[in-house]
Design a protein around this nucleic acid. Structure first.
Lengths: 206, 206
DNA sequence: ATCCGCATCAATCGTTTGGTTGATCTTTGT
DNA sequence: ACAAAGATCAACCAAACGATTGATGCGGAT
């Protein structure tokens, strides 16, 4: 029995590549291509694919994680397999939390992708080998959950803004900014702002 | 007359995609695929393609800029067309300086790629529209050239290291680190370390 | 032979930052 | 109704930071 697949990627070249790879497998059938999350939802609702192969970065519009969450709310819900270039921890965990069935890096060989699709269709969780460890570690010591406000501050921090600028931008006092920063540093285990930026980037928080 | 092309990308899927796209054009002929810079040089020396279509990020091994420089030293030298996901200024300029004939983003439509290849083969410079402006701006106010040592400091800075740590790591005194930082800030137009990190990332310096 | 850029170091000074403690108010969940 | 968590603000202090000035030695360019 063939597995039906919907491709979601904002790069036409990548879509062509996936289609070429998957067309060579007779157990997999590509039933559609979407360039955006919105388009993916429309097509998925229409074609009911077994698996949606989805990039995390989708240019403009909703991102891969939101798309995943929305796809999983469909009935019947397709398995969602994330296929992307990046392996940033927060994104992986975010995608899994959103209901993704698995996560593969684009570096992998075509056979791995085909294999992953079939395992995803069978309900298995699919993770690139080196990712599995990190995800499990992530479970053991969960990523610090920053509040919305803390993310605001962190984002501005990452642009190099001084506390005064952050305060002005967010319409709060410098004291408040410092307060948020203290919490951010504590949660991230950073001892200064530069390190906080580094950790935040590293884990994909921003 | 057909234009011969060598594909260079570390992602099998992307190579398949490009091949699929280019095979559909009868004026272009793919003569080889390489996953690394080293492989690209070997194949280019052997097949003498008119154009090499090259990703900037090539995983391990030499990067796209180095590959470009080496390719341009071949005789006859192929035109090198950079095709990548990212549009960071320093990389674009670096690629152009290394002798790249043009620079396209992977977001573009397949026809644009085919068109770009043919224009590159004809010796034209090919730049994605929104890039052209930035490159020209880059010419007007050239990117600050940091010294090797400054890059060392900046890299450590970006990991969140304090001056003392940077000093220890580089086996110099803190005074020296501060001295380098002053120059870095001046060159980047940054008023603090966080902003310097931001600018450095933004322009692709690190 | 001279000049200039680079790397190295030193001393000083004012400002910013990060750490701390503690407080009020709102929202959210139970 | 109450507890918990988040957002807001205040005042204080030591350490770190950024700016400035100035100096030495080395290497490459002219």
């Amino acid at each position: 029995m063939t597995t039906t697949v919907l491709l979601v990627d904002d790069h036409p070249v990548v879509r062509s590549g996936l289609r070429a790879v998957l067309d060579s497998a007779d157990t997999v059938q590509v039933v559609g291509e979407a360039a955006t999350g919105e388009e993916a939802l429309t097509l998925a609702a229409h074609f009911h694919p077994d698996v949606v192969l989805c990039d995390l970065r989708l240019g403009s519009g909703i991102d891969g994680i939101e798309t995943t969450a929305a796809l999983r709310n469909l009935d019947p819900a397709p398995a969602v397999l994330i296929l992307t270039t990046f392996d940033r921890d927060a994104e992986i965990l975010g995608a899994i939390e959103a209901g993704a069935t698995g996560y593969l890096l684009k570096e992998v060989a075509p056979e791995t992708i085909i294999d992953g699709i079939q395992r995803a269709a069978a309900g298995e969780t699919v993770l690139a080998p080196d990712l599995a460890t990190r995800v499990l570690n992530g479970m053991r010591s969960p990523l610090p959950k920053l509040t919305d406000r803390e993310i605001d501050v962190l984002s501005l921090l990452a642009t190099g803004a001084a506390n005064k600028e952050i305060a002005r931008t967010l319409f709060v006092t410098e004291a408040t900014v410092k307060s948020h920063l203290v919490h951010i540093f504590a949660k991230l285990g950073a001892e200064n702002r530069s390190r906080a930026i580094h950790i935040a980037r590293d884990t994909g928080l921003i």
